[in-house]
Design a binder for these strands. Structure first.
Length: 354
DNA sequence: AATTCGTGGCG
DNA sequence: TCGCCAAGAAT
């Protein structure tokens, strides 16, 4: 608890640092404006938090601007076509987030009168909102005293208390430390302040301890262990998988594409028809093209790395007759085809052809 | 509880 | 070139 903290009022020290050094973001209300009574839009906070899951602020900015320009409210997003939302999300990764985003928007309209509930338990029940996002929306959007525990906070707590237990085993301990520090005044600003500290000062490599507002109480700095924390359990090596995709174009310019099933890798996204992606060594599945044609391999290969495997993709190309009846997929007419609707690996295959 | 799920930037 | 890392959730 804070009354056993020998180093003074840590939350207050951090809030005073945040008042000066808060990063500006399109969804964020700066601390001075917040103090003057301006409240953040819960829709924008929720949307930004979902986009920011495992994704950098720099990457999220443009996606956030496009989403909010196209769908300014939860109700607008709930009314959107699935394909439009998936296309707008293309390139951002972790596509289950986009599917759950739509489910969540529709649930908010159906069950919460079109407003994100100012209720931590109710937020947790919504699709795509887990422990972190529920706490982030509760604190940042509604200024409720919930504790966010993201990668930044884990790192800051591990260093502040010099905790050497590797992640993820250390999470309960780190959460308890973070909760003990969370103030009941300005919890929203405090949540953003800890994450800003982790993102700008208490960084993974070469932390800027000399200018850290918590440099005096930080045990890892005192012990010289800051740069090696938090410890993490080693990761497994990524296997290499191989596959083939088929880029077919009709004489009228239409492309043969398919919408991938909602479950699994790139679920719900537009992509080129192709084989399964499997590790070399076993029997390669016979490449079954989506339509009979004079398929020719393109020079070069697409190399792409997913979270848990490397992919080597062979790209086949063929012109198709205008009366082609594909065994798989559907044609997208030339004017409706935007490469930016494709997930990155599929766009790479298209780029190989251009 | 361990896996699955993207992508781009960085050293 | 390559592993690490980024405001995690779902199963």
């Amino acid at each position: 608890m804070r009354d056993t903290d020998p180093s003074g009022d840590l939350p207050l020290i951090l809030l005073e640092w945040y008042d000066v050094h808060a990063r500006a973001m399109p969804w964020r209300v700066p601390p001075a404006a917040r103090a003057a009574g301006v409240r953040p839009d819960p829709y924008r906070i929720w949307l930004s938090e979902v986009m920011l899951q495992q994704t950098t602020v720099a990457t999220v900015r443009d996606y956030f601007q496009r989403f909010t320009a196209r769908w300014p409210t939860v109700a607008d997003l709930a009314a959107a076509a699935d394909a439009d939302v998936m296309g707008e999300w293309a390139g951002l990764g972790y596509y289950a987030r986009a599917r759950n985003l739509l489910k969540c928007a529709r649930a908010v309209v159906a069950d919460h009168d079109g407003h994100l509930p100012a209720d931590h338990a109710a937020l947790l029940k919504l699709p795509g909102i887990g422990p972190y996002t529920a706490a982030a929306v509760s604190s940042i959007a509604f200024d409720l005293p919930f504790t966010v525990l993201d990668g930044n906070v884990e790192r800051v707590m591990a260093r502040l208390y010099d905790i050497h237990t590797p992640l993820p085993a250390a999470k309960p301990d780190l959460m308890a430390r973070a909760q003990a520090l969370t103030p009941t005044t300005r919890p929203g600003d405090y949540a953003q302040a800890v994450m800003d500290l982790g993102a700008t000062i208490c960084t993974p490599k070469s932390p800027a301890c000399g200018i850290c507002p918590w440099r005096d109480p930080c045990l890892a700095r005192r012990n010289g262990t800051a740069a090696e924390l938090p410890k993490k359990t080693p990761k497994k090596p990524k296997p290499i998988r191989h596959g083939t995709v088929y880029l077919g174009q009709r004489a009228d310019g239409a492309w043969l594409l398919e919408t991938r099933p909602d479950k699994g890798l790139l679920g719900g996204m537009l992509g080129w028809p192709g084989t399964d992606w499997i590790e070399a060594g076993g029997p390669r599945p016979a490449g079954t093209p989506p339509a009979p044609a004079d398929w020719q391999p393109l020079a070069g290969e697409v190399r792409h790395t997913f979270t848990h495997f490397h992919l080597m993709l062979t790209v086949m190309h063929a012109p198709l007759p205008n009366d082609t009846e594909p065994a798989r997929g559907h044609f997208v007419v030339r004017d409706d085809f935007r490469p930016s609707d494709l997930p990155t690996v599929m766009r790479k295959a298209y780029d190989l052809l251009r």
